[in-house]
Design a protein around this nucleic acid. Structure first.
Lengths: 144, 144
DNA sequence: AATTTTATTTATAACTATTATAATTTGATT
DNA sequence: AATCAAATTATAATAGTTATAAATAAAATT
């Protein structure tokens, strides 16, 4: 945990941003909820528990900043809310998601799975892939 | 064109919805812009040219209805606006998208490409896939 | 160390996309 | 022609997000 924060701090500094207490508190919440897919509002509520003076706009700006630095990925499951998902350290690609239409749960797939598909797309469509979003909607193993 | 409208009309009737003039005008706009990825506001502007009295809420409701009937798919490329994309008639799966981070263009991939991946996901994650969203972000062939 | 500069935050207002509401209209049904 | 349900309009409300101005904190300069 502390090491990851230290590395994020360095990443910020390398682009001359600072890890302010507010930003650190926000990052900690994200690390503590690594498996969740929190909205900005969710993050705000959780950060407030430890840092009650923080403002919502600061949370939004921090999340935007972390997105820029590729520390988190911003994702949208079609419900009109952006969610923020920590990227695995050193992961080449953004992971995939399984959204259950019964219970609303969101599970993650860390495996790449798209290597072959991406090769085809790059060749046949002459497109340089920089990032991707892959989400499956269906019935999760718990609801079957 | 007329045949497709006729079929959509039947689809509506089968669920006891009517194809009102407003709905028909909206469907026509979607058919005439099959390759685009229009937002509700875009659709509204285009429908207004032919049917100036239409209200924005009607367009929203019509798009919602068409989404329910799987005539269109609602998709979000991360810019905070929902876009509506006509589904290919008889297509088993929603098609994929190539979003260019240079020029903002959106191209479509009609080929499935995910058959193998979906088999793996269904087996290994014990998940029943009902729908999917796959979008690649990168540099399109025109911007290379 | 005091001063100036710059980045950041706070609180709040503004904005945008979308949805809900109430009154009205349309169109089918009896 | 009268009735009833569905749909539409106009508008208000809501939700999520972004912008603004003033205040604060940190860093750089003298």
């Amino acid at each position: 945990m502390e090491q990851r924060i230290e590395r994020i701090k360095k990443q910020l500094h390398s682009q001359s941003y600072k890890l302010t207490p507010q930003r650190e508190a926000t990052v900690r919440v994200l690390l503590e909820h690594e498996d969740d897919h929190l909205s900005a509002e969710d993050v705000y509520m959780l950060v407030k528990e430890k840092y009650p003076e923080i403002g919502l706009a600061t949370v939004y700006r921090t999340l935007e900043l972390l997105t820029e630095l590729k520390v988190v990925d911003k994702i949208n499951f079609g419900d009109g809310v952006s969610r923020y998902d920590l990227r695995q350290e050193g992961a080449a690609h953004f992971h995939h998601h399984l959204v259950c239409i019964e219970c609303g749960s969101v599970d993650e797939i860390q495996e790449d799975l798209l290597e072959d598909v991406e090769k085809v797309v790059e060749d046949r469509w002459n497109f340089v892939i920089k990032d991707h979003r892959l989400t499956f909607h269906g019935i999760c193993h718990r609801c079957k």
